[in-house]
Design a binder for these strands. Structure first.
Length: 433
RNA sequence: GCGACUGUAGCUCAGUUGGUUAGAGUGCCAGGUUGUGGCCCUGGAGGUCGUCGGUUCAAGUCCGAUCAGUCGCCCCA
C-alpha cells in the first residue's frame, strides 16, 4: 500500500467496515442533522470558523501550562513566517470570529452553534483520535444562570433524542479566578505535609496545576485528599448563589445531576459553572461532552467584558456509545426511491433511460440505474442491494407504447404507468418516511 | 511520552509439536438466465502470510528489529 492515513485518524465510508459500524457517513449525517435541528429549536445559529488559527490565540485563551497547549497542538510555520495551529478546540476561534466581525459591538445576546473538527497530537485509543469532531454551542452576553441551564438542557436533550439512555451529568462551580486562587493556596497548604506519601503524578500536579490533584484515580491520593477543602467552600456569596440557582433550574427542568467537586477540566478559561456528561461503553474515555462558563475569556482575548458559556459534544464518542449499546441511532437516508431497470440494450432504450432518470431527478426523486450492461436479474439485484423502493422497468415494448412497468419492491405489485405520468405515480405512492 | 496485546484474500477468520502447491465463509466477476430478481448451481479472479533480517534441510508457524493497528497510562471530546 503506497499511502496510509496518518496515525490515529480514521476514514468515514458509505459502507462502514463490519468491525466499526460507526464509521458510516449515514450515521454521521444522521447525528449531525439531529444536532442542527436541536440547535435551531433552542434558538442557536450556525457559525463556521477556519480550521487554522494563529497559535497564540490558543496559548492565550486555553493557558500555556495546559497539556493541550504545551504538548498537543499541531503547529507549523507558514511561508509568511507565521506560527499557525490546527484548532485544538472550538471556543477560542468562535470568540475570535465574533470580535473580528463586530458581533460584540452590539449589546445583543449571541447564541451560536458549530460542528467542527479539532486536532490534538495525542496517543490514540478508543474514543480518542488526533482529529475529532465536536458539535457545540456558545452563548454570549448574559450571566443569568437560566442560560447555563438552557445550554445544559440542550446537551442533555441531544443525548435523550439520540437514544442514549444512561448518561450522568456532573456539575461543579469554579467560582471567580480570585476565589479559585484562594482555594488553590488552601489546597496546597493542606496537601503539602502529605506530599511525600503521594504519587509522583500528584507531586507533579502540585506544582503545575494543583486543582487537577483532585481528579485522580490513585487510591492513596484519594485517601490523602479525603479531608481536603473543596472549591465550593471558597466560593463567595455571589458565586454560591449562581451555582444554587443553576441547581434549582435543573431541578425545575427535571434534569438529574451530581455535584462533582473534582470536576476541574483542562482549560484555564472556565469560571463558575463547569459540567461534563459521562456515558458508558467508551472504554477509558467516558466523557461524551462537556463545557462551562467563561466570563473572562473575551476580555482575555482582547475584547470587551462579555460573559459567555458553551459546550462541546464529541461526535465519535456519541457514535461509539450508541454502538456499544447496540443502538443504530439516527441515520441519514441514502437509498434511492426509484431504480430504472433496462430490459434490453439498444441505444434507444439507453437514451430513454437517461431521459427518464433526469426527469425523476429534476422532480426531486432519488433515482439510479445500472451502467455496466448487466442482465435484468443482476440489475434487479443491484436495485435490491441499494434498497430502492420502486423498480421502473423499461423495454422495447414499453418504449414503443410510451409506458414503464412500475414495481413496488416491498409489495411486489406491478402496474403499468405512462412515461409522462411516472412522477405523479411515484409521488402518490407511499414513500419511505 | 510510557506500557500491554495484535498483524494471513476487499471483509470476518482458520492454518496442528516448524514439513510439499496457504484454506473457508462472505463480498466481487462471469455463466446457468438480457422480460421479473432478492434464492440456488457452476466456474473465475483475488495473497511478496505487515516489512527487513536471523535460526533451520525446511518458517505463515521460532527469534530479533522495524512499521502499523488496538487497548491502557496520561489527557480529554
Amino acid at each position: 500500500m503506497p499511502y496510509q492515513r496518518l496515525p490515529y485518524l480514521y476514514d468515514v465510508l458509505p459502507d462502514a467496515p463490519p468491525r466499526d459500524p460507526w464509521l458510516s457517513t449515514a450515521r454521521w449525517r444522521g447525528m449531525e442533522n439531529l444536532f442542527r435541528e436541536l440547535a435551531r429549536r433552542f434558538g442557536y445559529r450556525e457559525i463556521r470558523t477556519p480550521i487554522l488559527e494563529p497559535a497564540e490565540l490558543f496559548t492565550r485563551s486555553i493557558g500555556e501550562a495546559t497539556d493541550i497547549v504545551s504538548k498537543e497542538m499541531f503547529l507549523f510555520t507558514d511561508r509568511g513566517g507565521r506560527l499557525n495551529a490546527l484548532k485544538p478546540e472550538g471556543t477560542a476561534p468562535v470568540v475570535r470570529a465574533c470580535m473580528e466581525n463586530g458581533l460584540f459591538g452590539e449589546p445583543a445576546l449571541h447564541k451560536l452553534y458549530y460542528i467542527g473538527q479539532n486536532f490534538r497530537y495525542e496517543r490514540g485509543q478508543k474514543g480518542r483520535y488526533r482529529q475529532h469532531q465536536q458539535m457545540g454551542v456558545e452563548a454570549f452576553g448574559s450571566t443569568d444562570p437560566a442560560l447555563d441551564a438552557e445550554v445544559i438542557a440542550l446537551a442533555m436533550t441531544f443525548f435523550t433524542e439520540l437514544g442514549i439512555p444512561e448518561t450522568t451529568l456532573h456539575i461543579n462551580s469554579l467560582g471567580t479566578p480570585a476565589e479559585r486562587a484562594e482555594f488553590r493556596q488552601a489546597l496546597r497548604d493542606y496537601v503539602k505535609p502529605h506530599l511525600a506519601a503521594m504519587s509522583e503524578e500528584a507531586r507533579m500536579r502540585f506544582e503545575v496545576n494543583p486543582l487537577r490533584m483532585l481528579d485522580t484515580k490513585a487510591e492513596r491520593d484519594l485517601q490523602m485528599l479525603e479531608g481536603a477543602p473543596t472549591l465550593l467552600d471558597y466560593l463567595g456569596a455571589e458565586s454560591r448563589n449562581l451555582f444554587e440557582a443553576l441547581q434549582q433550574m435543573l431541578g425545575a427542568l427535571g434534569i438529574p445531576f451530581v455535584i462533582n467537586t473534582a470536576l476541574v477540566r483542562g482549560f484555564d478559561y472556565y469560571t463558575h459553572t463547569v459540567f461534563e456528561i459521562k456515558g458508558s461503553g467508551l472504554g477509558a474515555q467516558d466523557a461524551l461532552g462537556g463545557g462551562g462558563r467563561y466570563d473572562g475569556l473575551v476580555q482575555e482575548c482582547g475584547g470587551p467584558a462579555m460573559p459567555g458559556l458553551g459546550f462541546g459534544i464529541g461526535t465519535e464518542r456519541c457514535l461509539l456509545a450508541l454502538e456499544s449499546l447496540g443502538i443504530r441511532g439516527p441515520e441519514a437516508d441514502e437509498k434511492p426511491v426509484a431504480f430504472v431497470v433496462l430490459a434490453g440494450s439498444t441505444p434507444e432504450l439507453n437514451q430513454a433511460a437517461v431521459q427518464l432518470l433526469m426527469k425523476l431527478r429534476r422532480a426531486g426523486i432519488a433515482a439510479d440505474r445500472d451502467y455496466q450492461g448487466k442482465n435484468m436479474r443482476r440489475q434487479m439485484k443491484r436495485a435490491d442491494d441499494l434498497g430502492a423502493q420502486y423498480l421502473l422497468i423499461l423495454g422495447e415494448d414499453e418504449l414503443a407504447a410510451g409506458i414503464v412497468q412500475m414495481k413496488n419492491q416491498s409489495s411486489r405489485e406491478q402496474k403499468t404507468v405512462a412515461i409522462g405520468e411516472v412522477i405523479e405515480a411515484l409521488m402518490s405512492e407511499p414513500r419511505r418516511e
